Amino acid sequence: MPRQLDLTALRSFAAVADAGGVTRAASQLNLTQSAVSMQLKRLEETLGLSLLDRSARTIALTAQGEQLLAYARRLLALNDEAWGRLTHPAFEGTLDFGVPHDIIFPHVPVVLQRFAAEYPRVKLQLHSLYTSGLKDMLARGDMDLILTTEATVDAGGETLRREPLVWVGAPGGQAWRARPLRFASCAHCVFKRPALDAMEAAGIPWEFAVDSISTAAIDATVAADLAVSVQLESAVPARCEAIRHCGALPQLPDHRVNMYIAPGPRAVLAERLAGFLRQSYGVAESLAAE
């Protein structure tokens, strides 16, 4: 059965090594000299090794002691980091995080799980709304961090990914061949205007099949092969697919997944969440392709 090192004893050991003696180490640790000596003895007995060379006038480390000191410093630093992160008052409370419904998957659930594990004292509140609504809430101070889908990025924003819009239909569907082209879209969707402009420019007659605030209604209509919609390439809904139209439908512009952090007392905590989002989206790789 594996043995466990006593962090308190390791802290005393590291203090003795740094201070060059038990007396000064005891003063730094606010302990008695005998308490520090007992911790050192217990640590040596646990390991079955001599860690200090007591033959000289000043205390020196043995070869085994030098090796343990490197581990001790790493273990203590990790312990102190974890303790500070989990107990620091900046890392508690509520954080409001807004995301458009169509980009919640696949990145957001993974980020939420990781954030909850690392900051268990923070209540992370997820809000799903369209981009313009989220930006309004951020401006009012009702959001701490938001993701958006936009053609450009505003001042203070950061692009996490840039990718094309695609036409979306039912798997193996034929609705995209019909004229007028039946089109389904959310009332506030930022992708609606680019899609309509593209159809107008290409001379494709169209009509609304669904213009609703219900994304479920839109996805169901498209999955039933009664209409087409547009979506980011990475966010095609389940039971739908990107249409392989071989140029029969017009090219759509690229859009961005942007991130905005509100200033204020929770900005430090929001930045921790932002770091997880950057890692999940692979910012360096995606922006290098621009």
Rank of each mutant, 00 (worst) to 15 (best):
R182L: 11
T148M: 07
R177P: 03
G98I: 07
D102Y: 08
A175S: 06
I146T: 02
F91H: 09
F91I: 05
L181P: 03
C186E: 06
L95G: 01
Q174C: 13
G157K: 00
A117W: 09
D136P: 01
G172V: 05
P171A: 15
M143N: 08
T152C: 08
L181M: 02
Y119V: 00
L95T: 00
A90T: 02
L129A: 13
G169L: 02
G156N: 07
A139Q: 12
L145P: 01
Y119K: 04
A151S: 13
R177D: 09
W176K: 05
A175W: 02
K135T: 07
A175Q: 01
D154K: 13
L112E: 01
V168P: 03
V122Y: 02
V168G: 03
P109H: 09
F91M: 05
D102F: 07
E163L: 15
M137Y: 09
T152S: 14
W167Q: 08
T94P: 05
E158K: 05
G172R: 09
D102I: 15
L95R: 03
V110A: 12
Q174H: 15
G173Y: 03
M137D: 03
Q125P: 02
G156V: 12
R179Y: 14
F91P: 00
H107F: 08
E158V: 03
M143W: 04
A117I: 13
P109V: 12
R177G: 07
P106G: 10
K135R: 13
L129C: 10
E150Y: 10
T131H: 04
T159H: 09
G98E: 08
R114K: 13
T94D: 06
T159F: 13
G98T: 06
